[in-house]
């Protein structure tokens, strides 16, 4: 258990709903759920990838104070952000955002599972994008493909080569990005300053120091 996790447990005692409301992005919407289940039914993944809990059930678990069950759940990591649930929710609950909010919170307090692929993608994407202010698509792909070793990476790359070539032809992918030659944004310092400010504001809102 991480320190952060213990701190939060101590701070909110048994009130997990309050913890989520204050700490997770859009978490204060959880209480508005009326358990109609339209979100769960609307998920295009059909939970084939083995979700532990559909959104509405996750919300019920939060209300029931089942902290471990929620934070250990893989559900929020499996959301594909299609927004079907959000669009259909009769209470206009931003379910997609909440799922990500809970995932982010689980990560922040050290409860995210190791080698969680969604987490890995998100982190890679974030690092890639914030470094230069633009996504280096070739590098991003490389990092993702080769995370499980060279052999597996080559295999994946080979499988996708037609797609890659097509993108290059359509000038949607610049192979030179592989060697770091890529288009940069104009004011990278300004972007970093913006991100720092955003972090500061977010921390303030959630009642913690950055």
């Amino acid at each position: 258990m991480s320190d952060m996790n213990q701190q939060m447990t101590a701070k909110y005692k048994n009130n997990f709903l309050k913890e989520i409301e204050e700490q997770a992005e859009m978490g204060d919407w959880v209480k508005m759920c009326m358990q109609c289940g339209v979100c769960s039914g609307s998920c295009p993944t059909n939970f084939h990838s083995g979700w532990d809990h559909p959104p509405q059930e996750l919300f019920m678990l939060i209300r029931a104070g089942k902290r471990d069950e929620v934070l250990n759940s893989n559900s929020m990591w499996n959301c594909v952000s299609c927004y079907n649930c959000y669009v259909r929710c009769p209470r206009k609950i931003p379910i997609t955002h909440i799922m990500h909010g809970i995932a982010e919170y689980a990560y922040r307090i050290g409860r995210a599972p190791k080698s969680q692929p969604t987490l890995h993608l998100s982190q890679t994407f974030w690092n890639n994008a914030t470094k230069t202010g633009r996504v280096n698509e070739v590098k991003l792909t490389q990092t993702l493909y080769f995370k499980d070793g060279i052999a597996s990476g080559i295999k994946k790359a080979m499988a996708m080569q037609d797609v890659a070539l097509g993108l290059v032809k359509a000038k949607r992918l610049n192979p030179l990005e592989a060697v770091g030659i890529s288009h940069k944004c104009k004011d990278i310092k300004g972007i970093h300053a913006m991100l720092d400010k955003a972090r500061e504001l977010e921390a303030k809102r959630k009642g913690r120091t950055a």
Partner: peptide, 11 residues
């Protein structure tokens, strides 16, 4: 009809 029975979660 597609959906989830929320009583006990049954798709």
């Amino acid at each position: 009809l597609w959906g989830v029975n929320t009583e006990g979660y049954v798709r």
